[in-house]
Write a protein that binds this DNA or RNA. Sequence first.
DNA 1: CCTACACCGAAT
DNA 2: TTCGGTGTAG
Length: 417
Amino acid sequence: MVTAAPLGFRALPLPLAQLSLAAVLKCGQSFRWSIHPLDAALTAHEYRLCLHDRVVCLRQTSDSIFYRAVFPESVLLGPSEEAAREAETLAWLRDYFQLDIDLLCLYKEWAEKDAVFARLRTRFEGLRMLRQDPWENLVSFICSSNNNISRITKMVKSLCSHYSPSLLSLPLPALSSENESYHPFPPPSLLADPSVPATLRALGFGYRADFIHKTARMLVDAHGAHGGPERWLQTLRAMPTADARAELLKLMGVGRKVADCVLLMSLDKTEVIPVDTHVHQIAIKHYGLRGISGKKPTMSPALYDEINEKLLAVWGTHAGWAQTVLFTADLKSFSLYGLPTPAPTPTPSPSKRRSRASDDAGDDLTVLVPPRPNKRARKMVAVSVANVEPVEVPEIGGVSLAERVKGRRRGVQTPIK
DNA sequence: CCTACACCGAAT
DNA sequence: TTCGGTGTAG
């Protein structure tokens, strides 16, 4: 069913299998999108994110993304400036969702290499890694320690509304006449103030309040207050994985797991696999990893590396992407929000039936795929804009992916010891 | 290098 | 108690 673009929206033809907003925006990568149901049956939603100068609004059908940007009340703009803004928004979309990466191509490669993935792939289509703002990503994941998605989301929104002025206010898309105000993510300088720890604690951040404040202070001290820290974080994208990780680990509240999340989700390190206890359990179950000998499931650096190298060998250069796709299916929150909660795949031997999605792969699957040099999936996704001349999207921001990821290989296998 | 333990708050 | 961790001290 091809739907006409809602009023004020532009259409961006894109198959659901290339990008599923419902999956990507709720899977624990980003915590700041607001999600509004468009009908009582919860079959469609509008997603909104406040950037520094505009609010991006998205909707999706089976074959298109619809997008628009809303700006604060300002001087009247001419047609050319309007067009420029349109182009910026589209460019942002392509960059943020990394639309020059062909997800189908990646799924195909993972399925060929990994029987577990091959079996589960149809359950979560369109799951891709975002290319997030590093500063926001960093702070969000400092908040993630010993925490869950629901509370992280509340904390991040609370952080924005308390430390960053409202950019604009917008009526909810449907089912209500209320307004919602939109706040950008606060810059490091605003979180480096001495009053911040007490304030954040009062907001329920707990011990993370000190982490955030100290990290902000470290970055401002080292790189200045006016976009310096943000620019410096961006430079980590051009750095080998191991070097970028070492920089992140200097920050307060940033351990291996948080550092790896930032490397994967905002610093272009596609091969990095953040390892938590959940990933560990699945790695044991399906990929032949050793468990912990003792009783305390405390993750040692050596074990972390072992898991990481093992899964990297299975999935290759985009191992971090593959891990996200695979383990997102296990998220409880996915039963919410009208995602097509994957019906359990019929198992040849239906002796066991469990509720958790990942258990469906069968228990005796110990997959041992020899590591193989992997050619990057870079076939571009055809993109065009309705009512505008079709636009091909060869690369992002003038910099090809090959350029961005160049020289990363060395860091991949480097153990931390 | 590796192991306890505290730390906040919500869920169980 | 446990959890989608990290800093600190041994």
